[in-house]
Each structure stands twice: as C-alpha cells, then as structure tokens.
C-alpha cells in the first residue's frame, strides 16, 4: 500500500498584506509525482519553499511523512531533499568534495555520495571542479545533492530550467526511475511536456490561486485528452 508523503492543508502566504499564495491543499503518496505548473509569479516557488522549510507559511499546515517542521525541524529536514531554482555553488571545489560536504551536513554515510553520483551520471566528472562543469552538469549536481540520504520527499524547483534537450530526456528517465523506487516528488516547471511525461498529479497555478488540479488521468479525461500545453492555453487564454 502507498502511504502519505506530503499533506498540505490550507497553506497560505502573505507578504505585507499581499497574498502571494491563496489557501491550497495538496496530498502526495509515495511513488507519486506532483507537478506545479504556471507562469512567473504564479506562486510555485513560494509553495515549494514553504514545504522545504525556507519560508514560514502565514496559514496552514504542512506534514511530510506525518511530521511537521515546527515539531521537529531536524527530523523534518532529513525527510526532504530540496533543489533550489538558482544559486551559486562554491565552484572552486570538486564535485566530490562539495557533495561530501553536503552529505556530512545531512548526516548521510559517504557511500551515498557514490550512489547519487551514479544516479545523475556524474561519476566521470567527480574529481573535476564545479567551475569546469557545464550548466547542465551543475543542475545534475544540485539534483544529486537533493537525493542524498534518499529523503521521503524530493522538492525540485524548476529542475529543467535552461537545460538542453538531452538532459531533459535524462531528467525524465531519472524521475521515472525514482518513481519506481517509490519516491515522492513535487516539482515546479513551466515545461509542461516534462510534467506530462512524469507527473501523476498536476496543479495549475495563476497569481497564487489554483486554477485547476487533479491527477493527470482525470484531467485528460476532463479535457478530452488535450495535452497539458493545450489545457494551459485554454485555461489562461480562452476564458
């Protein structure tokens, strides 16, 4: 049986009286993938940051594997892996060095490093400095970092941003592999084809509000087998 990896209830975020995320409910089982779709400023990133524990919610509750951040943040932190959308890495270090650093901070044994390096295909580059890696390789590195310690929930913020088609393909493969291993994943994207290929659940967001949500299968049924891209166009431009 599948168990609940993420349960979000009434989650809301306001900045100075301005609501950026209206109350939202989400549920995710292990082995499921949820895609948050929407344009810039839709509130995707904020929702993920709240789940990752970076941003404090104004209202609502978040449970990852039945655990809340407020109750036990250390345990909570061990249950998630987070991939930020953009940040500067310490590029003077080698892939291996930096990954080991993250592993130690996650209290994860060293062998994990080899395991995730293999998963993201960075074994051959492991002794190169991050400086010499391409953007795609660096994305893989950040992804590898999130996977350290096999967390219950992977939170990926725009994992496919600025990637070449080859890496897009391998990303899809990786998500599918992880799904097979019963991994729960929540990610944001504006590449709707990626969502279409990987997601079980899809949430369309616009200006902090949920426009449409449901399992991919339900939505397909509802929208006469339109692709997500077509659904998006209909949702935002034809109503």
């Amino acid at each position: 049986m599948s168990d609940l990896a993420l349960k979000v209830k009434g989650l809301e975020k306001k900045y100075h009286e301005q609501t950026v995320v209206f109350p939202i409910d989400l549920e995710l089982q292990t082995g499921q993938v949820l895609a948050l779709c929407g344009g810039n400023g839709a509130g995707k990133s904020t929702i993920l940051k709240m789940i990752a524990g970076i941003v404090e919610p104004t209202q609502g509750s978040i449970l990852v594997d039945h655990l809340s951040w407020d109750k036990n943040r250390k345990e909570y932190a061990k249950k998630i892996g987070y991939m930020p959308d953009h940040f500067s890495l310490d590029i003077s270090l080698t892939v291996r060095e930096l990954l080991h650093y993250y592993a130690r901070l996650k209290k994860v044994p060293g062998q994990e490093v080899d395991k995730v390096l293999e998963k993201v295909g960075l074994v051959s580059a492991q002794n190169k400095s991050l400086e010499s890696l391409s953007k795609g390789m660096r994305q893989r590195f950040v992804f590898a970092q999130a996977m350290l310690g096999s967390p219950k929930l992977l939170i990926l913020d725009e994992p496919t941003n600025g990637l070449d088609p080859y890496w897009m393909k391998s990303f899809v493969d990786m998500i599918r592999d992880l799904k097979k291993e019963n991994q729960a994943i929540i990610f944001s994207t504006h590449h709707l084809d990626i969502a279409e290929e990987t997601a079980d659940l899809v949430v369309f967001l616009h200006e902090g509000k949920v426009m449409e949500s449901g399992s991919l299968a339900e939505l397909k049924q509802q929208y006469n087998n339109l692709s997500l891209q077509q659904m998006f166009t209909r949702l935002f431009f034809q109503t």
């Binding site: 990752a52 932190a77 998630i80 987070y82 500067s88 901070l105 996650k106």
Partner: peptide, 13 residues
C-alpha cells in the same frame, strides 16, 4: 545573497 544558505536551511543544520 548567493542562495547557499537557502539550501542549507533545508538541511538538519
């Protein structure tokens, strides 16, 4: 500024 702390703040640190 570079966002490294954002990532680390999701760690048990």
């Amino acid at each position: 500024e570079d966002g490294r702390w954002n990532l680390l703040s999701t760690y048990p640190l």
